[in-house]
């Protein structure tokens, strides 16, 4: 019987060039590429229609667009809660859409996901909620304790590990969710409207946390329809419009007169 993180179980592995032990240019490749991605829930009304997008390593990208534009769908396709109808999503060179069902958990271990509704187990303690991300990796308890402590410290919840998650405020619960997302040191963080349930000041604090995480080299995709957040932070903004991704100049919010299209063609 293998442990939960035993490589013999056939987990997600970044794709390598045939014949090479490792890809020399792997570090310079985009971390994420969407190639002609189609997704529809109802026939005749696709949410994504041939979407192309490239995300480089270490980027902080806002995804925005009206409700139903496909922001959440995009993230769900990434962590394989949904599958594409057509096209490819390459994460670290591997097509997420073509992963076998058995490999999906290993993909998710390379991602950190934060939701608007936190998705915490309210009856568990703060520590337990964060530690679970490391327990699935089968790490020793001592290491889990130390890394959870560090993660909670990073989100400003040091010494709150013993508190029950259900009694925390919304902002604190979102910090716990962020700690859970970063504790495994994933390459990519997906945030789906993480400030949607928080007041403006708390939203800015939470955004600041994601920026701190991004500053350590982690790529962050931040889906939001809160224009105030886009205005206060000069970051790359991708607008989902009619099923396609349109890049907007950094520091310019969609709808401004200064909006100009961004060439998001895939590298040859």
């Amino acid at each position: 019987m293998h442990g939960p993180d035993d490589p013999k179980e056939g987990g997600f592995q970044p794709q390598l060039r045939p014949g090479a032990r490792f890809a020399r240019d792997a570090a310079s490749r985009p971390i994420l590429m969407f190639e002609d991605v189609y997704k529809s829930y109802k026939p005749g009304s696709p949410v994504l229609r041939g979407m192309n997008l490239v995300i480089e390593r270490g980027e902080f990208v806002f995804f925005t667009g009206p409700s139903g534009s496909g922001k959440s769908t995009l993230l769900r396709l990434l962590y394989r809660s949904e599958t594409v109808d057509d096209g490819r999503i390459l994460f670290m060179g591997r097509d997420v859409a073509r992963l076998s069902q058995d490999s999906v958990p290993y993909l998710r271990r390379n991602l950190g996901v934060v939701f608007q509704d936190f998705k915490l187990v309210s009856s568990w303690t703060v520590f337990e909620n964060v530690a679970i991300a490391l327990e699935v990796l089968g790490l020793p308890q001592r290491l889990i304790t130390s890394r959870v402590g560090e993660a909670l410290d990073r989100v400003g919840l040091a010494r709150r590990g013993g508190d029950c998650a259900g009694v925390l405020s919304g902002g604190e619960q979102q910090r716990v969710a962020i700690a859970r997302a970063i504790v495994g040191e994933p390459a990519l963080i997906l945030a789906d409207e993480p400030t949607g349930n928080l007041d403006p000041q708390l939203a800015i604090d939470i955004l600041g946390l994601f920026e701190d995480i991004n500053a350590t080299g982690t790529t962050v995709l931040f889906a939001t329809h809160d224009r105030s957040l886009l205005e206060i932070r000069p970051r790359r903004v991708v607008v989902l419009d009619e099923g396609k991704a349109v890049d907007v100049r950094a520091g310019v919010t969609p709808g401004d007169d200064g909006f100009s299209g961004y060439d998001n063609a895939l590298p040859v």
Binding site: P4, E9, P105, R108, R109, K119, S122, I132, V136
Partner: peptide, 16 residues
């Protein structure tokens, strides 16, 4: 259900 959802989210295998 919430616990199971969280487990799947953080990459737990069905056996876990």
């Amino acid at each position: 259900r919430a616990e199971v959802e969280v487990l799947k989210l953080v990459g737990a295998t069905p056996s876990f």
